[in-house]
Nucleic acid binder design. Structure first.
Lengths: 207, 207
DNA sequence: TATAAAATCGACCGTCGGTCGAAAATAACA
DNA sequence: TGTTATTTTCGACCGACGGTCGATTTTATA
């Protein structure tokens, strides 16, 4: 009852790495089982299908990210920084950035898109909390929080994935964030320093 | 030199329809050639690969949409309405709405995403023109027009595809559009009536 | 040690995207 | 018109892929 779970995790890790390195569509089951050193039947003993594996891989990723986000949620950071922290929690972990950059936005459309959709699903309720807190503190001012938060997330995803806002252009992003949430101009300015400070910097070997 | 081109267009139309009806990934070459009543070799005489067919199909779609957008661009509509017209030009034609709804957002991730990316590419320069016109008329007020327009487009795509803003929620979208472009509150209010007026209404059998 | 359950194996299958050389249809030229 | 080029069509065939299944080995249970 323990051995099986360990093997499944092992396969999951291999699949995760290969999906990211070569893309979901370009990774064959044969390659995964070769890497794992098992027979095909064994693989299908643990996973219903290739797509089920993808879902499981994504579950694994999202679970970790939600964990980080909830940690950020419980800190005593000022609301604007907390907001950014939660959003940032859903970016791939620091040590995996390199790998992810290689394929995340370029190919691997299916996986990339599925991940982004799941992130929106999971992050919206958490961010809604933060924004509500901000409203009660008079920092934000808006209605329809969920819809706005959803848009904020989608914007942020495109900002990271496509690298739309580079260098000084971040100001545009900051401005849009403030206006979407009804924050006073300048409230989110710290984002600019955060990004130029290197926290969000991507090694731009792709695109 | 004529016959060949006609056949290619015929295959393109079949592929287009099937890609939309059943999704790109779920449509096999065998099904396409069966529908067309030709042999596989003939198919590959006209298309390098399945993906090349997808690109050609998308080209066909985008070409038509760009045409409609440029028409809208040359009208003497007031800038805010012109802006919306151009954006709306990139929605699937009225008579195809039904088909598109069935699969557009649900499955068919790859095609859907590729189409959306192409739309952003093609529509940004056109919309930038409109916004610049609006700025010179004092209707909009912003810098970094291209980035803002790109975000506006991405927001609009999600609005249509996911149906985020339904009914009265459109106000949120309108508000965000105004703020992103620096328009006076109320400038884009007519969008609300446009949508509730049925122009943008989708038959929500999907999702 | 006998038995049940969990885990592993790999040959096999149908489908898919794609290739290729030959044949048929069409155009160009004499 | 007959003859040669060119364009178009054909379908058998290929390798890779995702997935199945009954047999077999390993492990837990009593």
């Amino acid at each position: 009852m323990k051995k099986g779970e360990r093997r499944k995790q092992e396969l999951l890790k291999i699949a995760y790495r290969m999906f990211i390195e070569k893309g979901y569509e370009n990774t064959s089951i044969d390659e995964i089982i070769a890497e794992a050193g098992i027979a095909k039947g064994t693989y299908y003993y643990y996973f219903e299908s290739k797509e089920a594996t993808l879902e499981a891989v994504i579950d694994m990723m999202i679970e970790e990210e939600v964990g980080r986000a909830k940690e950020a949620l419980e800190t005593s950071l000022p609301v604007p920084k907390k907001l950014v922290s939660v959003i940032y929690s859903f970016r791939p972990a620091q040590d995996e950035q390199g790998i992810v950059n290689a394929l995340d936005a370029k190919e691997n459309i299916v996986m990339h898109e599925k991940v982004n959709r799941r992130i929106v699903e999971e992050a919206v309720p958490l961010l809604t909390e933060v924004v509500e807190e901000g409203i009660s503190q008079g920092i934000f001012e808006c209605t329809n929080i969920e819809k706005r938060v959803k848009m904020l997330l989608i914007m942020s995803q495109h900002m990271f994935d496509d690298g739309i806002f580079t260098g000084r252009d971040v100001e545009v992003y900051v401005d849009m964030v403030e206006k979407i949430l009804g924050a006073k101009s300048g409230t989110m300015n710290f984002i600019t320093e955060l990004i130029s400070g290197g926290v969000y910097v991507r090694t731009d070997d792709n695109q």
